[in-house]
Write a protein that binds this DNA or RNA. Structure first.
Lengths: 232, 232
DNA sequence: GTCGGTAGTTGAACACGTTCAAGAAGGGGC
DNA sequence: GCCCCTTCTTGAACGTGTTCAACTACCGAC
């Protein structure tokens, strides 16, 4: 239903399409206003006016106000990947790698905590294309999962063979949990989220290591079976 | 800001206030329309018209359309408590008690899966008074936590002394997780949520039992310290 | 019975997200 | 130059949630 030009999210090509400039103008204006006033307080009329275009023009490029959020996601994901690179280069052990990537994610989001929190509700709606589990956001999601795959591939940790293929997605899921906590985190500077990361990662680390133990094999199996059943 | 008469959520008193009838009429009409058409498709004008009152009148009793959701929560909580009673009477072991109460919760919500899912997003917004973590919903929340307290008090399970006081809230948190999964569950009849409950409860059961083990004492401590740190 | 005040009720009006028919701009084919 | 088609742009109009000044119904006090 909602017509849209080919998604040119990935930078690089020199704005061939005629409207690409307008698209970026509207997107940047929206991001700025979201940061300045918050999501709810930013009206589509205000975005259009500040960008110097008509309201309908914004809807030509973005199907809805919510779709502007998706733009924010994609942007954040790219920044997250970049911020994680130094960690992946530096650390070799699983724990520090995982913690570093989680911290990098929060680092990227921190400046937007005020307004990001208010619109993460849209992501929580299952029917919304903005849900991190939806088909529409499978691109950014897969990129994020791949990032946690890199946390593993580059690490010195030895992981249970059966658990291994599931683990990147599980780590991503843990990251989603961290974000959920972060969104609700009212502590100054969201320090508690940092404590959550630093406290939980060693536990995950130990758990992953334990999964290889002979005695715990049945439990590991049980957990993996459950996960496989529950995946869509 | 939003003026409201004293909340008479608890039934029993014979509608002393003049407007109590109107209040219930509007609430029941809203619940019916939500079920029939879904939350987004039900307009405040439609609710008012079906109830035979003016639009503004609905706002006299309920601060916003979202506040009607809170009414749904409260109602569901009461039904959940009632549906859990047979389980609490029947079962003695922790596992079956916990599983039974979780299933009872899903039983109560199942008829509303279609529309309940769409508005759980409102609950996910941290700033919203509808968030299950908010001060405004501390009443229903505490009632729910108490229900999981009863799961423990009546059970034959012996729990680590340090873990014990935290456990009801943790079980409630697990219930929130189940609901989060249920909301996204697209399987027919939400059978996967049932599998989640049946698969996860034995694991929780085992985990709780293990927490008392000498060898695992340091880990239990670590987890409990983390939880205590993260609580608000 | 009348007065005064509270509780309850009304519907027009507002700002918002969104739609859409109409038009403008651009660019290739001849 | 002219035509045609796609791409882009416009702003009025619609339906929504919400507000609010005005009005009515009730009830106790005298």
């Amino acid at each position: 239903m909602t017509e849209q030009p080919a998604p040119t999210t990935t930078a690089g090509d020199p704005a061939t399409a005629r409207g690409e400039q307008t698209r970026q103008l509207i997107r940047d204006t929206a991001m700025r206003l979201f940061r300045e006033r918050g999501y709810a307080q930013t009206t589509m009329r205000a975005i259009a006016q500040e960008a110097g275009v008509a309201v309908g023009n914004a809807y030509y490029y973005f199907g809805s106000k919510d779709h502007l959020i998706q733009e924010f996601y994609a942007q954040s994901q790219v920044e997250h990947r970049a911020a994680a690179q130094p960690v992946l280069d530096r650390e070799a052990a699983f724990g520090p790698r995982f913690a570093g990537v989680l911290h990098a994610g929060i680092d990227v989001l921190t400046p937007s905590h005020g307004f990001a929190a208010t619109f993460f509700k849209t992501a929580a709606e299952p029917t919304s294309p903005l849900s991190p589990f939806s088909a529409e956001s499978s691109g950014p999601r897969q990129a994020a999962i791949d990032l946690f795959g890199e946390v593993l591939t580059g690490s010195t940790a030895t992981v249970d063979a059966e658990l291994r293929p599931q683990l990147p997605e599980l780590l991503w899921l843990a990251y989603m949990g961290v974000i959920l906590y972060w969104v609700h985190d009212r502590s100054p500077g969201q320090t508690k989220t940092r404590q959550l990361i630093d406290g939980a990662v060693p536990l995950v680390d130990r758990l992953v290591a334990l999964s290889r133990l002979r005695v715990l094999r049945p439990v590991t199996r049980q957990v993996l079976d459950l996960i496989r059943t529950l995946r869509h």
